[in-house]
Design a protein around this nucleic acid. Structure first.
Length: 491
DNA sequence: AAAAAAC
């Protein structure tokens, strides 16, 4: 294995762009996969988010694409993604690492107008990144012919199967020439994926970098007992948020889309900086919310499982499962949004009495116990600096200038009582100060180091250093201003 | 028992 990019066989245009992006060392999957891919071998990559998976195919593709030219409506390469956000993310990678190339690219996803997509397709594209539905639509309209595709990437294959895309994928792949290079990536490997690879790949190289269904040791996982009553559950969540040390930003997962909207609104009413993300929202709002979250204009992202996998959101400090996921694998993917790239992260899961069965399935899957927060011995987040207990017992007031609500609870030990904390909202949740309070936020972060409370509304305190220090390259990278521009994708 | 993806 090489330990820098120069030994992998990538072209200088690519290695220059990689260097310009600030990366020097390939990740494990990159080091393993890239040499094979440059040899035009088929490849199965078993890797989870955060391993640099995306760059492991983008970089060699860029090198391979340097020979040849695109013809109208006949893309040279095709990348299939399960969600629109993932597709957009991959296109960002092509922009970043392809900046020394003159390659054209089109993003073919639903929810955006056909017009720009069509213009680009007519001119011919080297790289086509698509979600299955819109791609098939465009194929049927005669806008795309796939018989010139040299390279096919099926990304997040397990999720594609989960989402019932298998028929669509088959229809699409059947339109590709048999002589091509195919790569398939999946977080897990099971019989179904195996069957898929037999069907679509020829003599593939296997590359695996992390065990499936494992949870990173860098994630501090905790269970929190809660009532099943919605308002009490929401109060318990707020108490958890307030009690979380070092919370810079967090994703809060709900099982249902309508709960996403409800919870986000509730949090906002209580003065938190929260936005929502789920598949029923129009594409523009989805992209705007995601961008606001990535650029730290939004601290809390309430989301459905659309955000559970693959999404490139660097350095989420906390994940909250407002609901226990019904499918155990979703738990692994959700909490995998934190503790990435060797950093520490915290994942809280709120567990109502009826959730026992699903919880058992999760414990069985991840093969290790998760502590309950009640347990005094383990209740303190291990990920943050061990403070003396005295510091922790400090009252939480004063963390912001003009508080919109009273302290969440009495200044006693913060375990056991919190999840039962009945709503304390003091009847004035609606008085939202019009403007933000960045100064207060900064103050709370900088001048009150002893206060255990993190400020959920803080925004200004973190930024460049996070973006840079994160991401060993690959799935996590500097922030894209790009998602807002849904149409202008080729360079 | 949920979400995602085409118009």
């Amino acid at each position: 294995m090489t330990d820098d990019f120069s030994g992998l066989g990538l072209s200088s245009k690519v290695t220059d762009a990689v260097a310009a992006a600030g990366y020097t060392k390939p990740t494990e999957i990159q080091a393993q996969a890239i040499p094979h891919l440059l040899q035009k071998k088929d490849l199965i990559g078993i890797a989870q988010t955060g391993t640099g998976k995306t760059a492991s195919f983008v970089l060699p593709m860029l090198t391979l694409l340097e020979n040849g030219r695109a013809r109208a409506r006949m893309p040279r390469t095709l990348i299939l993604e399960p969600t629109r956000e993932l597709a957009a993310q991959v296109s960002e990678n092509f922009e970043k690492y392809g900046k020394n190339h003159r390659l054209s690219m089109a993003l073919i996803i639903g929810g955006v107008s056909f017009e720009d997509q069509n213009k680009k397709l007519d001119r011919g594209v080297d790289v086509l990144i698509a979600t299955p539905g819109r791609l098939l639509d465009q194929i049927e309209r005669g806008k795309i012919m796939l018989n010139g595709v040299e390279i096919l990437v099926i990304d997040e294959a397990d999720r594609m199967l989960d989402m019932g895309f298998i028929d669509d994928i088959e229809k699409i792949v059947n339109r590709l020439p048999p002589r091509r290079q195919t790569m398939l990536f999946s977080a897990t490997m099971d019989a179904q994926i195996e069957r898929l690879t037999k069907k679509f790949l020829k003599d593939p190289v296997h590359v695996q970098v992390s065990r499936a269904a494992s949870t990173a040791d860098t994630i501090d996982q905790k269970l929190v007992k809660v009532s099943s009553k919605p308002d009490e559950k929401r109060a318990a969540l707020r108490a958890r948020i307030d009690a979380s040390e070092g919370l810079t930003n967090a994703i809060i997962f709900c099982n249902r889309k309508r709960d996403v909207a409800t919870l986000a609104r509730s949090l906002e009413r209580h003065g938190y900086s929260a936005g929502s993300l789920h598949g029923d929202m129009d594409q523009k709002s989805r992209m705007e919310t995601l961008d606001a979250f990535k650029t730290n204009k939004l601290t809390l992202l309430v989301a459905s499982d659309v955000a559970a996998r693959g999404l490139d959101i660097p350095a989420v400090s906390h994940v909250f499962n407002f609901d226990v996921p019904v499918h155990a694998e979703d738990y692994v993917h959700r909490i995998g949004r934190t503790g990435r790239a060797g950093r520490s992260g915290v994942a809280y899961t709120l567990v109502a009495p009826a959730d026992g069965k699903h919880l058992d399935a999760i414990l069985k899957l991840i093969q290790k116990p998760i502590d309950w927060l009640d347990d005094v011995k383990t209740a303190k987040p291990a990920a943050s600096e061990e403070q003396a207990d005295g510091a922790e017992a400090k009252p939480s007031r004063g963390r912001r200038g003009r508080a919109t609500r009273p302290p969440a609870r009495a200044p006693r030990e913060q375990n056991a009582t919190t999840e039962r904390a009945t709503p304390v909202e003091a009847a004035a949740p609606a008085e939202r100060p019009a403007a933000e309070r960045p100064s207060a936020a900064v103050r709370s972060a900088a001048a009150e180091p002893a206060a255990p409370k993190s400020n959920s509304r803080q925004r200004a305190s973190r930024k460049p250093e996070q973006a840079a220090a994160d991401s060993p390259f690959g799935d996590a990278g500097p922030i894209p201003a790009f998602l807002l521009r849904s149409t202008r994708l080729s360079q």
